[in-house]
Write a protein that binds this DNA or RNA. Structure first.
Lengths: 264, 264
DNA sequence: TTGCTCCTCACGTCACGTGAGGTGGC
DNA sequence: TTGCTCCTCACGTCACGTGAGGTGGC
């Protein structure tokens, strides 16, 4: 422990010197205080803040509860770090395989959404009209959450002219409405964000698939296409301005593919 | 992302708005900047600081090295957290078993020390004279490190009147000298610090052993008795004042027992 | 007009680290 | 006397959060 740390503990009222020379201001500590100091250092090492350390020492009867709380927090932090490490490895492997930086590994939050699943003709405007309908329904029920709408490709295939898709419009948590479900998230997903019209989706899908291949990843969920900025009819509903784009050259779209690292 | 975060990224030169209205000061961002923002957020989530994020974006060619460095750091942090969690559990179990707070779970650093191992009569002053000899030897070689001397009980038994002990005087790292060795540390050790003469050691040893029993721990190394404040002859050597105590009632001693949690 | 978002300071957070400038004991 | 440790301010760290007080667009 440094002098500065001891001074700090004194300021925080954790460890007062037994004597402070009024002449020189020198702090003197008693041998017994080593016991207290050791406790402070131990609790600090377990991840407690100095305030929490004070709580532990002041109220030993609630120590058990504080330890349990700390344990929970530590376990969660640890789990998050494990996820971080995996995402880092995924990125690193993709990089080694020559993937461009614009493929990003991130988490997908689980989202409550009003959805409609259908086998659609990709050449038609069926998807658009489904979105218009759901937006209107969500607006009527005052359930719309301020998050981007998205599309799930349940067969993870964009080669044909038809696909099994699910149109999703986020709603506020707790909303109960017919057609609302909890769309699963993913701890890791390979993602690309692109600018411009939707024609790029199929080629980017191929790029993502190649990335996963090179990276020893397996796809473990439906491809998710999130519309960050897009064009909307806004008949019977209205969206915040940050979601909207004028010409399709200004659309911003994210393709995300949930993956799992294959254990090597 | 909050506005404040965007402002912060601008100050840090990570993400400049395409246009700032000179009248109102309003910041305007282009749709393409979402790509850059996503990268920033991803790297930040992987644990990079904003400075490191800038380095990653400015010099993509060194990204691989930066990722590797991050991976190493993350893995180490993770391992430390695992240790923390185990120590926390050990403390929690000890507490549930009614152990007093003064039994503390901590790490023992591995230490380079000048040592002498011998089967001694505990009633004699053989241990004291061994310490005097080693202190003198260490001082003569100008090798003494500023750390407390300690004693290892290799048979982990204090019942009899004899014991297999190793007297240890810390030396500076890198010192090569006959009798110097690297004394192993421990990731977890149950420890008590006590005040006063050495007669208390046996009863505290029993207490520690009971603690370990209650806590489903097995002893996995020699008991270590560290002399934090003690009396010394200082003939042929001298010690810093913080190590020294006058009467034996002011001695400060720590007993530490390396333990391993038995997997439940 | 009301409510909302944006703006610019400027200070707070957390556990100390790091000088700046000065002093007492060996 | 030199070198060392202690002292007291006071500011820095890191990534923003949080008001305080004010303004422009709907």
């Amino acid at each position: 422990v440094t002098v500065k740390a001891l001074r700090h503990y004194e300021e925080e009222g954790l460890l007062r010197p037994v004597r402070v020379d009024p002449q020189t201001g020198y702090r003197y500590y008693a041998a017994e205080q080593l016991v207290c100091l050791t406790q402070i250092l131990q609790l600090k090492d377990l991840g407690f803040s100095l305030n929490e350390v004070r709580a532990c020492l002041d109220a030993p009867e609630s120590l058990a509860a504080l330890l349990d709380a700390r344990r929970t927090a530590l376990a969660r932090a640890l789990a998050e770090d494990v996820g971080r490490l995996r995402r880092l490895d995924a990125l690193r492997h993709g990089l080694a395989a020559g993937a461009p930086l614009d493929v990003v590994v991130r988490m997908l939050e689980p989202t409550r959404a009003l959805t409609a699943r259908e086998h659609v003709d990709l050449a038609s405007d069926r998807i658009t009209s489904l979105f218009e309908t759901l937006e209107r329904d969500a607006a009527r029920a005052k359930a719309r959450a301020a998050a981007s709408p998205f599309l799930l490709f349940h067969d993870n295939c964009l080669d044909g002219d038809h696909a099994d898709v699910e149109v999703c419009v986020p709603v506020r948590p707790g909303v109960r409405l017919d057609g609302v479900r909890e769309v699963e998230g993913a701890t890791e997903a390979a993602a690309v964000t692109y600018l411009g019209p939707y024609q790029q989706t199929p080629s980017l899908f191929v790029k993502l698939a190649a990335w996963c291949d090179a990276d020893q990843c397996t796809v473990c969920g439906p491809l998710r296409e999130t519309y960050r900025r897009f064009g909307a009819g806004q008949r019977g509903y209205s969206l915040p301005e940050w979601m909207l784009a004028g010409p399709s050259s200004e659309y911003v779209t994210e393709l995300a593919m949930p993956v799992r690292r294959v254990p090597a």
